[in-house]
Amino acid sequence: MAVKFLREKWFYLVLLLAAVTLPLVVTDRYIFQLAIMSLIFSIATLSLNLILGYTGQASLAHAGFFGIGAYGVGLMTKAGLSFWLALPLASFISALVGFLIGLPTLRTRGSYFAIATLCFGVIISIVIGNWVELTGGHTGLLGIPRPKIGSFEFSSQISQYYLVLAFLLLTLFVMHRLVHSLQGLSFMSVRNNEPLAEAVGINTFATKIISFMVANFFAGMAGGIYASLIGSISPSTASFNHTFNWLVYLLLGGAATLAGPILGAFAFPLLMEYLQFLEDYRLIIFGVLLIIVIIYFPRGLMGGIESLQHRIKTRYRLRKGDGKNVVTASGKSHQAV
């Protein structure tokens, strides 16, 4: 157990080192901008992962909540509020809206929730597009101020990169703690077998509400960061395409893992970049890929890596043949997957 723990720590440290040194390696401004976007979308995908990957509820309004966060921060900072106040406020509003939407929709199971959130996502984009006085309608909000600390403004790519990286680490920290805990088991019990979870005393409705609120908080946060770094937003910020993209990142990377969403958010846009010459056909490939992955590799890239790891490990354990020790030594962690 200790060894495994250390190994994981090392693994994360190496990743972190890579992330921190990336700006030194990447000199192409365009690719660098892509990396910043991938960081933002990693946050969004990680939060989608909580409600969909771990809790099993397909929330298709994720971009809607991203939009709430984006417009929240955009409007508040344009009105003069500090980014550092506006961001938590907007994220909180996003979580609160999630709560209100969750009340009627999370009582239902499976398809109902997916469809209801789909509808809600559409409502949000229609409202954003039509409430011209508040949102600027289809032209959107322009000239959103950049985040500042004192007189330092996050205007260079490098500073923006590190800013988003910090938020991603915060998100990862929260997700890691949630998922590797009894609370995480509650989430997974709902995903895996809701009637049984309910029968052994888990308030599945409350569990789903918590997961949905946390997910929407971080979706809103990602949107808020997006708004203030990009500087302009429009109804397309909250569009469905974003939800679809994140879904793909999540599934390709591996749902219900912590590394998967980030992997997906980086690998997939990069892949698309290289396939640029295919133009419209790119999307068709995207669709075909989605179907193939979900049928043949339902656990994505991380799933593939894990089953490989598992195979090696079981062989190792068989050789040692000390099942009893394994139990008590690793009994500390009630963690699945």
Binding site: L185, N192, A197
Partner: peptide, 13 residues
């Protein structure tokens, strides 16, 4: 059962 999880996780739930 919670068939995606391990035995101990099932009991913890």
């Amino acid at each position: 059962l919670f068939n995606q999880l391990r035995v101990a996780d099932n009991l913890a739930i």
